[in-house]
C-alpha cells in the first residue's frame, strides 16, 4: 500500500490507440502523456471524437492501447482491473431492471464474494452517501433518471476502490439535477478522498468539479491543454460567478477552440 501511495495513481506515457475500422484506421489517441496524483479530481473535456471516453476505457482495461505505456497504481490496467482497483460509472445508469436498487448495489459485492452482512452494511453506507436511503427495495423504473444515476454511482462506490472513473455520468440529466449531483459529487469526493477521472462535455461542470482539467481535441485524439485549477477545495455553487472561475472557463474554451483548428 505504501508503495502505491508513493507514486502517481495513473501515469500514461506516449500512449497511442488506433482502431481498425471498415473505413481505415482511426487514430483515437495520439501521444497521450498524463500523470494523475492521488486524490486529484481530473476532468477530461473535448468535442465528441476527441478520445476522452476512449482514454477512460483504456484506464479501465476496456480498450487496449496500440503503443506507449500506462500504469494504474504502478501496475498494468488489466492487473488493476483484476485487483478491482477502480469503480466505473457509465453514461447511462445501466441498472439491471430485474434487481432492486439494493440488489443492483450488491451485484459487485456478490461478484467479489463478500458475506451477506458486509454486503448489507456496504449497501446501506453507499445509499446514504448518495442520499438514496429508503429506496433500497425499489426497482429502477420506480426512480427518476437522476436517482437512477445516483444509484449507479452508489454501485461504483460500493466497490470501495480508491479510483472512480466516470464517463459523462450526468450527460443525460437536466441542468437542475446536474447542479445538485455535481455538488453531491464534490462533497462525496471530499469525504472519501478518492481519485476521480471524469469525462464531460460541459465546460462549467469541468471547471466546477476539477482540480485538473484535461482539454482534448479530435482527429487524432490528443491533449490540447492541461489546466491546474487554482480554485479552493471548498466550492459552493456560486463560485461559478467568481472571476477565477470565469477565467479558467475561458482558458478551457480557448483550448477547445485551438484544438478544433479549422474544423469549426
Amino acid at each position: 500500500m505504501s508503495l502505491t501511495e508513493a507514486g502517481p495513481v495513473i501515469q500514461a506515457r506516449a500512449l497511442n490507440l488506433t482502431f481498425q475500422t471498415g473505413d481505415g484506421p482511426v487514430h483515437a489517441l495520439k501521444d497521450i502523456d498524463l500523470t494523475i496524483e492521488k486524490g486529484e479530481f481530473v476532468s477530461f473535456i473535448g468535442p465528441s471524437g476527441c478520445g476522452k471516453t476512449t482514454f477512460l476505457r483504456v484506464m479501465a482495461d476496456l480498450e487496449t492501447p496500440t503503443s506507449g505505456s500506462i500504469t494504474i497504481n504502478g501496475t498494468s490496467p488489466e492487473e488493476a482491473r483484476r485487483a478491482r482497483a477502480y469503480g466505473y460509472v457509465f453514461q447511462a445508469a445501466g441498472l439491471y431492471p430485474w434487481r432492486t436498487i439494493g440488489g443492483n448495489i450488491r451485484l459487485p459485492l456478490e461478484i467479489m464474494g463478500l458475506g451477506k452482512v458486509e454486503q448489507a452494511e456496504r449497501t446501506a453506507r453507499v445509499l446514504d452517501l448518495v442520499e438514496l436511503s429508503g429506496f433500497e427495495k425499489k426497482f429502477p423504473w420506480q426512480l427518476s433518471g437522476g436517482m437512477q444515476q445516483r444509484a449507479s454511482i452508489a454501485r461504483a462506490l460500493a466497490f470501495d476502490a480508491d479510483i472512480l472513473l466516470m464517463d459523462e455520468p450526468f450527460g443525460a440529466l437536466d441542468e437542475i439535477v446536474r447542479d445538485r449531483l455535481n455538488e453531491q459529487l464534490l462533497a462525496l469526493w471530499a469525504r472519501t478522498e478518492k481519485t476521480i477521472g471524469f469525462v464531460t462535455h460541459s465546460i462549467p461542470e469541468a471547471v466546477y468539479l476539477s482540480t485538473k482539467i484535461v482539454v482534448m481535441s479530435p482527429r487524432p485524439g490528443r491533449i490540447a491543454d492541461i489546466i491546474e485549477s487554482p480554485l479552493p477545495k471548498e466550492r459552493p455553487l456560486d463560485i461559478r460567478d467568481s472571476p477565477e472561475f470565469i477565467e479558467i472557463a475561458h482558458r478551457v474554451r480557448e483550448g477547445l477552440r485551438a484544438g478544433h483548428g479549422d474544423d469549426v
Partner: peptide
C-alpha cells in the same frame, strides 16, 4: 455496457451468465 460493467468487476464467465445473461 452491461457486459463492460461486469468486466470492470472482473466477473467470471459463469458469473456473467448467472447474474446477467440468464435473468
Amino acid at each position: 455496457m452491461q457486459l463492460d460493467l461486469l468486466k470492470t468487476y472482473s466477473a467470471s464467465g459463469w458469473q456473467t451468465f448467472w447474474k446477467l445473461r440468464l435473468p
